[in-house]
Computed example of a mutant assay.
Amino acid sequence: MAGKIRLEDRECPLSATLGVVGEWWTLLILHDAFDGYTRFDQFQENLKISSSMLTSRLRTLTTNGLLERRRYQTHPDRYEYVLTELGRSLRPVIVTLAAWGNSRLRPEDRSMILIDRQTGAEVEPVVVDRATGRPLDPETFVFAAGPAASEAMRDRYAAVAPASRRSAAGRGTSA
């Protein structure tokens, strides 16, 4: 997917992320992995994906460190694909995407919902700042040029408070 990133977007973290997980099948494979699927035949049966496409996507996910390929059988060799820590860190993104999709549907038209495992109550995820717990609304939180930003990126965000005025990890104050 790296070839699909525009030259001017190479430093953009969103573009870089889409280069890894922006393909439709990739997100569905990750969703299955979060649901406990690990084996090639499980992914293929559930997704109805061709062997060649699944092989390609699993290779991309392992190359990028989101899944780890582990042998679970010899004679013949068989492998499973297990989420890595990096792969597991994408779960909130996928949960949020699913919630966004559900928010566009009437409750009776939702085929999959997020629930509290203990109570069974449906939950609505929100994205918040880790330090303050405040929702990341666009009135309060905005993107700004970071320390490694090119001149073009600095120009794009020139109207936003300089990165040096924010804390190093984005904790505490906002732009």
Rank of each mutant, 00 (worst) to 15 (best):
E68M: 08
G87S: 10
E139C: 04
S150M: 05
S50T: 11
A158G: 04
L28G: 01
L61F: 05
R88K: 15
G146F: 06
Y81D: 04
M153Y: 02
L114M: 14
A99Q: 07
K48P: 01
L47N: 06
D129P: 00
N64M: 14
Q118T: 03
R57I: 01
V93W: 15
K48S: 14
P125R: 09
T26F: 01
D137Q: 09
N46Q: 12
Y37N: 06
L47T: 01
D155R: 07
P147H: 12
G133W: 04
Y81L: 13
A145I: 06
L86A: 15
E122N: 12
T60P: 02
L86T: 08
P107H: 04
F34K: 04
Q118F: 07
R59H: 04
T63N: 14
T60E: 15
A121L: 01
I29M: 13
D116A: 13
D129W: 00
F143S: 12
L27P: 00
E151P: 03
P92C: 08
L58M: 01
T74E: 12
L114G: 05
T132S: 15
L54G: 10
F141Q: 10
F43K: 02
W25A: 14
T62P: 05
T140F: 05
R57Y: 02
A158Y: 03
A145V: 07
V95F: 13
E85R: 12
Y157T: 04
T63A: 15
A131M: 12
D155M: 05
V142S: 14
F143V: 02
A145Y: 08
G87A: 12
T119F: 12
D155I: 00
G36I: 01
V126E: 13
S52T: 09
A98Q: 15
M53C: 14
W24N: 11
P107R: 06
I113W: 02
P92R: 07
R134D: 10
V126C: 12
A159E: 04
R78S: 10
E85P: 05
P135H: 02
E151L: 14
L114E: 04
L114A: 15
V123C: 07
T84P: 03
R156G: 11
V160C: 08
P147S: 14
P92K: 07
R117M: 09
V123Y: 02
W100M: 14
G101V: 01
T96Q: 10
A159N: 04
T84K: 04
K48M: 10
G133L: 08
F43M: 09
T38Q: 15
W100D: 12
R106P: 00
T62L: 06
T60W: 11
A152S: 13
N64P: 05
E68F: 03
T132F: 10
G36Y: 02
D32E: 09
D35C: 08
G36W: 02
R110W: 03
R70D: 05
T63S: 13
R59M: 08
E85W: 03
T63M: 13
A145R: 07
I115Q: 07
L97D: 03
R69I: 00
P125S: 11
G65P: 04
E80R: 14
